[in-house]
Nucleic acid binder design. Structure first.
Length: 295
DNA sequence: GCCCAGGGAATCG
DNA sequence: CGATTCCATGGG
């Protein structure tokens, strides 16, 4: 595949050409990340033909993204684009091939539905978030709704994250271990506070290694490692692996996805038919059901 | 197996 | 409007 290319730079906005599709709106609205929203007013507007500009904080930096349906626009330095955001957005992955694999995986009515979901979701990218942020965020996400998840995460960042231009970085495991579980509870995290704090302590002390999860190539082994943490079960581990550890074969099933499986696939859907791109297929099906199908 | 644990959103009556 | 339900996981 063709490598993404910086075409121009204006007002700190980079214009990027790349292969495949990219939808800023769908990528940042499909529930995979919690720290992006409408463009902050401290950031200059992208070129006039852009829609759906978003900004947020990841990898300890404020960043913004937009697109005009043809090219992608990134508010960042060219160096950061090459070393961080290109990978973050999955522009180095072959989504053309991924979509082909997803479309060919099924037959009959199932194949037809997958096709419909893909078209409605075209341009969603699986973001490659930081492992700790993804793990912590999806621990918080359990039995919870998105506005409240965002609120808890922002409180954690404001209280325990490093201050940077435009806000606060996601707090390190060290910082949250030092905070204590009562302090995390008092930010509104509820019963998840002890899960967050225990995970932070294990990672800060070296008793648990995120690098080991990252480097474990056998999916089931990586999943078991994560599930050894309290508060991390099948759903949370799948989300963390998909969004934070670049394990694109992860296939998170929450109540919505179970409903999709029951109503659209007769109660049976084997994620392994999508090979290493099961997680992308899951995002298409999930987004279609939650956002696109219901208008 | 069953209930419970924050709390805000969604849905119901 | 108020009341109820939802949510993913672990512990009692």
């Amino acid at each position: 595949m063709r490598a993404p290319t910086i075409l121009s730079e204006e007002n700190h906005w980079l214009e990027i050409s790349f292969e495949g599709d990219f939808s800023t709106a769908r990528t940042f609205d499909c529930g995979q990340c919690f720290r992006f929203g409408p463009l902050s007013d401290e950031i200059p507007l992208p070129p006039a033909d852009c829609k759906n500009a978003v900004s947020g904080i990841a990898y300890g930096k404020q960043v913004a993204f937009a697109d005009n349906g043809i090219h992608l626009f990134v508010y960042a330095s060219p160096e950061d684009f090459q070393t961080i955001w290109k990978q973050y957005l999955g522009l180095d992955a072959d989504y053309v091939q991924a979509n082909q694999q997803i479309q060919r995986a099924l037959t009959g009515a199932s194949r037809q539905h997958m096709q419909t979901a893909l078209e409605a979701s075209r341009g969603i990218r699986i973001l490659r978030q930081e492992p700790w942020e993804a793990l912590c965020s999806f621990i918080i996400s359990q039995n919870n709704n998105i506005p409240r998840i965002r609120k808890i995460i922002e409180a954690l960042c404001r209280e325990y994250g490093e201050q940077i231009t435009g806000g606060w970085a996601f707090p390190t495991p060290d910082a949250l271990a030092g905070a204590g579980k009562d302090a995390i509870f008092s930010l509104g995290a509820g019963f998840r506070a002890s899960y967050i704090w225990e995970a932070a302590c294990k990672i800060a002390s070296g008793a648990f290694s995120l690098d080991q999860v990252q480097n474990t190539q056998i999916y089931e082994e990586a999943r078991e490692l994560l599930c050894s943490l309290r508060g991390v079960g099948p759903k949370v581990s799948a989300c963390a692996l998909l969004f934070g550890f670049n394990k694109t074969e992860a296939f998170p099933v929450d109540v919505w996805m179970q409903r999709v499986i029951d109503t659209r696939f007769g109660g049976k859907l084997d994620p392994t038919v999508f090979g290493n791109w099961a997680g992308l297929a899951q995002q298409y099906l999930f987004y279609y059901e939650r956002c696109a199908a219901c208008g």
